[in-house]
């Protein structure tokens, strides 16, 4: 039983990373109907930016203000820089292609993903980079007989906090309503006077920014980063988005955590499960889609015939 609980915590931890990445992904997807293949690479970019910040400046900050300010600085830096990167990506790769329809957008997104990944490799090199150990908090808490790294707890709470903020923005504010309206029917939204450009800007800054934040936390938690790590997260984010229901932002979060838990339990309990984990995850996804085609929290789109 203790083992089960432990695996559950493992699952929620990795799931919360998936959820954070999926959140940014789902926002872009919901509003733009764009499968942003580059999102995973923006996540990677964030983790590299955080790394650069830590190596470059954090020692200075840490000396003056303490470890956690350095951490905060890294997160903030990646958040902001990624927001900028997101806007750039949208302007360069997506905006010129919107009028052409969905499929060319997918190819453009794939191209941007390849480009970003290789650009990161060109700038930072193909070696694995390691977050400096002395600049990352390593204290531990004891809780219910388990030893939990403080960082893990902070990450969990931070993720949860971010998710709640996002949920509140999207579901409870007027701007959030505008975002949701644009996601449902863009033409109609423009006709109703919603400033689409602002919505797109919002989605393309916040989405990648969240991804960047997740990237830094990921780097701090797991310590080593590499230019090709984004692909995996991108795919998981897409899966989580679908699992939770397309266009459903809370759904993406739920989907992410659920995905993490399912994966972990599969790896933990099926003999030889580690090797089959991804296969089973996809199988479960397919079954969910067959029997509950609109995802777990359901899709909020009805089609009038």
């Amino acid at each position: 039983m203790r083992v089960f609980f432990e695996q559950l915590v493992n699952g929620v931890t990795v799931g919360s990373f998936y959820a954070l990445v999926a959140l940014g992904y789902s926002m872009v997807y919901g509003v733009m109907k764009l499968i942003n293949f580059a999102h995973g690479d923006l996540f990677t970019l964030g983790s590299y930016l955080g790394y650069t910040f830590l190596v470059w400046r954090a020692a200075w900050i840490t000396e003056r203000a303490g470890l956690w300010w350095g951490v905060l600085g890294a997160i903030l830096f990646a958040f902001l820089a990624n927001a900028g990167a997101g806007i750039l990506v949208e302007r360069v790769a997506y905006r010129p292609v919107y009028r052409a329809g969905r499929l060319p957008l997918v190819v453009s997104a794939l191209g941007m993903s390849i480009f970003l990944q290789n650009a990161i490799m060109a700038i930072w090199g193909p070696r694995f980079q390691v977050y400096p150990g002395d600049l990352v908090p390593t204290a531990s808490l004891r809780f219910l007989g388990l030893s939990l790294p403080l960082l893990k707890v902070v990450i969990l709470f931070l993720s949860l906090g971010v998710m709640l903020v996002m949920y509140w923005i999207v579901e409870k504010t007027e701007f959030g309503a505008a975002v949701r309206a644009t996601a449902l029917d863009r033409e109609m939204a423009t006709l109703l006077g919603i400033d689409i450009q602002r919505v797109i800007l919002f989605v393309f800054t916040l989405g990648p920014a969240l991804g960047g934040m997740a990237g830094v936390m990921n780097g701090m938690y797991y310590r080593s980063i590499q230019f090709s790590m984004g692909w995996n997260y991108g795919l998981k984010a897409f899966t989580a988005t679908i699992l939770g229901g397309i266009g459903n932002i809370p759904g993406a979060m739920v989907g992410g955590v659920l995905l993490g838990v399912i994966e972990t339990l599969l790896a933990g309990y099926i003999p030889g499960g580690g090797a089959w984990k991804d296969g089973f995850t996809f199988l479960i996804l397919i079954l969910v889609l067959i029997f509950r085609p609109t995802g777990i929290l359901g899709e909020k789109v009805a089609e009038k015939v």
Binding site: T13, A267, A275
Partner: peptide, 14 residues
């Protein structure tokens, strides 16, 4: 384990 991932807590617990 699956290479390219980062969280191996599941496998390690097992």
């Amino acid at each position: 384990i699956t290479p390219g991932e980062q969280d191996y807590s599941a496998a390690l617990t097992k």
